[in-house]
Design a protein around this nucleic acid. Sequence first.
DNA 1: TAATACGTAACAATTGCGGTTGCATTAATA
DNA 2: TATTAATGCAACCGCAATTGTTACGTATTA
Lengths: 142, 142
Amino acid sequence: MKRNSRLSLALHTLSHMAGEPGRVRTSADIADHAGTNPVVVRRVLGKLREAGLLRSEKGHAGGWRLAKPAQSITLADVYLALDESLVSGPASEAEPGDCRVEANLQARVTEVLDDIEASLVARLRETKITDFHPSSCSYCGT
Amino acid sequence: MKRNSRLSLALHTLSHMAGEPGRVRTSADIADHAGTNPVVVRRVLGKLREAGLLRSEKGHAGGWRLAKPAQSITLADVYLALDESLVSGPASEAEPGDCRVEANLQARVTEVLDDIEASLVARLRETKITDFHPSSCSYCGT
DNA sequence: TAATACGTAACAATTGCGGTTGCATTAATA
DNA sequence: TATTAATGCAACCGCAATTGTTACGTATTA
């Protein structure tokens, strides 16, 4: 994994969960399948829990499961839950700046980027996390 | 400066040049105005030269100037010259991977991201670098 | 010949991110 | 009740990318 690894991990995990909603998965299981670390899994899935997509349970038989019907979750929900903002950065923390050209430019670029970010979310909203699980999956055994 | 600093620097500089095309500017002048370093300026503008947007001249009276009419240069030209790829990363170097779900997912996400990247370039192509220089500019004296 | 400016390489400083360890907390179970 | 197994969280390490900086070579003009 390299770029967009948080998003990749989140989508990958939710897609598997969508294929077998009843099953509870531990961070260790998920990390093993995704080739990463349980703590990293908890970090990423924690954001999804905050967004109401997942529930986690502590203790002996604890783990992670979907918090709502898989059919109701889109790629956009996951993207937004992670605060990714692939396109438009965090409001461009530029100083007020004394250069008019710079200010005009920033305003225009920010406008375009915000539009594109909105387009991206709209496109992601077209796809549900249930659209990826094949009839046969070695991970869940179906 | 922080995020997108290369693009910001490039656009800022070209916009000023568009307002006063005849003037030759040194890396030191540009760096001073942009609050950065001459070497950084040469790095960034070097990419624009490779793309045919700028010319640079060494020696005593050397410096940087536009290589083509300012009216013919759009934000997209600058963006592409820098190989920014704000949206879709460098072709997602994921291993073949033995998980079908992961592969399906990657394909779909890449498809959407590539579309969005193209949309971004199309939007940037709508704006020319001549659209930002005001009638009065303290930097160039007009 | 001296001054000036680019071209480039090398290195430092900073930042962000994933990975790792450790420990507290919680819940099921023997 | 004690043990086991899981999340939650904080702290730190290491790696990679980016910017800033210094230094030096090269080219051009006065």
